[in-house]
């Protein structure tokens, strides 16, 4: 059984993010964990589209079309990753806004002290 080591490391990074979300009690730490998770995901998508010794999917003047098509990496995964990076940035911007409001209302970043809503 061959273990694809690069994918494995990427999944470990993803799990570190999940671990942070599950166990951490600090609002900022949770935001950081979500960021780590998203970063790992982006990297994973990018890796799926990689081709060994591939070149960047940008045609240079004078490049031969067949040779380019035979050696370029997947442009679609890169487009996907660009989209998901922007979405991640937007999520974080909104989350930080919410976190600041949370701090203003409760005076703390510790979610074990933020318990207005009954269970």
């Amino acid at each position: 059984m061959n273990v694809p080591i690069i994918y494995t490391l990427c999944m470990i990074l993803f799990s570190v993010g999940i671990y942070g979300i599950v166990t951490k009690k600090n609002v900022v730490k949770i935001i950081l964990s979500i960021l780590i998770m998203e970063n790992a995901l982006n990297l994973f998508i990018l890796m799926i589209g990689y081709r060994k010794d591939g070149i960047a999917p940008i045609v240079q003047p004078g490049m031969d079309a067949a040779g380019f098509a035979a050696s370029s990496v997947d442009p679609l995964t890169q487009a996907m990753v660009l989209t998901s990076i922007v979405i991640g940035l937007s999520m974080i911007a909104l989350m930080v806004a919410i976190a600041i409001r949370l701090y203003e209302r409760f005076g703390t970043f510790d979610i074990s002290e933020i318990k207005d809503l009954k269970e």
């Binding site: 061959n2 494995t8 999944m11 671990y19 799926i48």
Partner: peptide
């Protein structure tokens, strides 16, 4: 912490099972 570790281990195990069947790294296209 124990709960988090257990959860993450299970999740990681499942994900690792999944990635073993992916096409090998660097063979896209």
């Amino acid at each position: 912490m124990i709960f988090g570790m257990a959860l993450v281990t299970v999740l990681l195990g499942i994900l690792l099972m999944g990635i073993q069947t992916l096409p090998e790294f660097g063979t896209a296209l």
